[in-house]
Design a protein around this nucleic acid. Sequence first.
DNA 1: CCGGGCGGGGAAAACATTTTCCGCGGCCTC
DNA 2: GAGGCCGCGGAAAATGTTTTCCCCGCCCGG
Lengths: 345, 345
Amino acid sequence: MQTESTGNVTLEQVAHHAGVSLATASRVLNGSTRQVGEKLRKRVVASAGELGYLPNASAQALARNSSSLVGLIVHDIADPYFSSIASGVTGGAEEEGLVVVLGTTGRTPHRETELLATLRAHRARAVVLAGTRTVDEAGNRNLAREIERFTAQGGRVACVSQGGLPADTVVPANREGAADLARRLIAMGHRRFAVLAGPPDLRTARDRLDGFHGALSEAGIEPAYHDVVHGAFTRDGGYASTERLLAAGTEATCLFAVNDVMATGAIAALRDAGLRVPDDLSVAGFDDIPTLRDLIPALTTVRLPLEWMGREAARLALAEDPAPEPRRVPVSAEVVVRDSTAPPA
Amino acid sequence: MQTESTGNVTLEQVAHHAGVSLATASRVLNGSTRQVGEKLRKRVVASAGELGYLPNASAQALARNSSSLVGLIVHDIADPYFSSIASGVTGGAEEEGLVVVLGTTGRTPHRETELLATLRAHRARAVVLAGTRTVDEAGNRNLAREIERFTAQGGRVACVSQGGLPADTVVPANREGAADLARRLIAMGHRRFAVLAGPPDLRTARDRLDGFHGALSEAGIEPAYHDVVHGAFTRDGGYASTERLLAAGTEATCLFAVNDVMATGAIAALRDAGLRVPDDLSVAGFDDIPTLRDLIPALTTVRLPLEWMGREAARLALAEDPAPEPRRVPVSAEVVVRDSTAPPA
DNA sequence: CCGGGCGGGGAAAACATTTTCCGCGGCCTC
DNA sequence: GAGGCCGCGGAAAATGTTTTCCCCGCCCGG
């Protein structure tokens, strides 16, 4: 039977209603340091329920110097790669009774630093950085500095995907996964590859490219660098990159896109150009995005447990122990061969 | 040249460093009510920069009784329907310098009420409710009550998709869109339809079903109710529903799934059952999810401007004027005919 | 029988900011 | 020349909690 007429019920009102002091009411309803006698405890709980008391989170954060907020920074929440990770992070945070603050950078690197500062201003308890790093040294240094401020203030930071940042990191096997994929494609009979390499300054993209090329070299295949085309890390980027590749002419029998959304764009571009996949050209991606599993032809790709990675990052960021030293959680990547690849004609 | 050694710089330190009072420092750096002389203003700004001052957002929220937080409540952020909307909401909020708090319900209706209370505790300035309503009257009443508390406290609420809730709402033309789609399919020659209707208690699902059936009736076609199968509003729900439909046997020539992700599952199930789309059975969806546009066969569907809808909801929730009365912004839905539908054999 | 601990309750300080209220000096007007 | 108003600065109250410190009474041991 809530009776709250208007405005907000404060702890003081609850205390008064229960005939106890502010301190006692606080100890009963929020604090956990000290015991309160059964009799008073019950009175306070009853009063709180009756008045519909809801603690003012801002005041609590101020007094405790720590809020129940967990930050999550991604480039673009509409990208299924990030929304899968976000799903894991929110799941992990909500289990702990925490609330997720979502920041999106729109792929602007310095926005990440800005958002981290905002989160520090809010005394967020932890932050998960899911945007992949660039190779921009200055930007990374700024970000590292901001991370140190954040941790100095008592917050914790975890990253998804690599980066030499001073924070716990969930590290997917981008290099090894791409290398494994290359070996599978070579075993299939392919010898000439084209690569949609994404943005040249993105670490994730570069690692996958490197891993792929490494395995090619091992097998004695010279990567044809004119068949490596850079472009945006999106579906449309994949489409455009593929168009450029076709316009320039290529003798590749297999096309590797460094992520699934680009591979999706590539398949569309090939289809629009009158080419069949995999008959005329094989296509492979990376990530194994759940939403894209129903594509036809089904995409050969490298599976990453994205949601699990997000959850794990949340776990790291919310762990009790202060972790004297950045931890790294390696995540293995598994090649999944489906219908978009076939032996070359 | 930041010199902040450790801990956090408070406004008091800035004021002291600049040789002014707390009030003046506050007015320069945050408040906007009153003017401060050019001389002092410069001194304060310089000191703040030098010390690396960052306002404590909790303290601000406490003193102002309003934070810079905007809530966003969805069922499942990994679902592209919601992540598209989320993209619009975050875009709109970040333009205003606000921060988005993401809550996910996991499709548990009362979680929505819980999350709204949490947001109220944080003195969130506004909330966008994107989860579709159920027809559960008691749950909706609780939610409406919580919305009223939230607005009484000075916050504003906007909803995406229908619901008789006391809040501004962006209302997509679910009925009309489904009806238009039905008419197009009838014009194509179809007379027998099966429907994957989603959960029976979900308003959005029911409205689309009603609109579809309404147009059928208008055309003198009796809906075959045994060809309406309910199931989860997800890809796997669509798959399972289609399996059940096939197991029961159907003479339908066209299958309407009330959203795209279910349609995706349906196409997969049909393919696994050895049926061709659209040759053996036409399939249509609803939403026009961007990520699913590259599906083959390309999905005939009803387009909703999801990201725009999210942005618009944010705009409503952040509008200046108090809006004496809930506003409704209608959103028209446009049929997009693609390859997954064809005249019946 | 007295002193010391201890368990539990309350007063008040602390948290960092905004905002109200007050005062002072200068300028304008009559 | 005097009174009033206005612009700008500062002191202090207010915001809603947590937490420290103190105190009281009770129990137990000496």
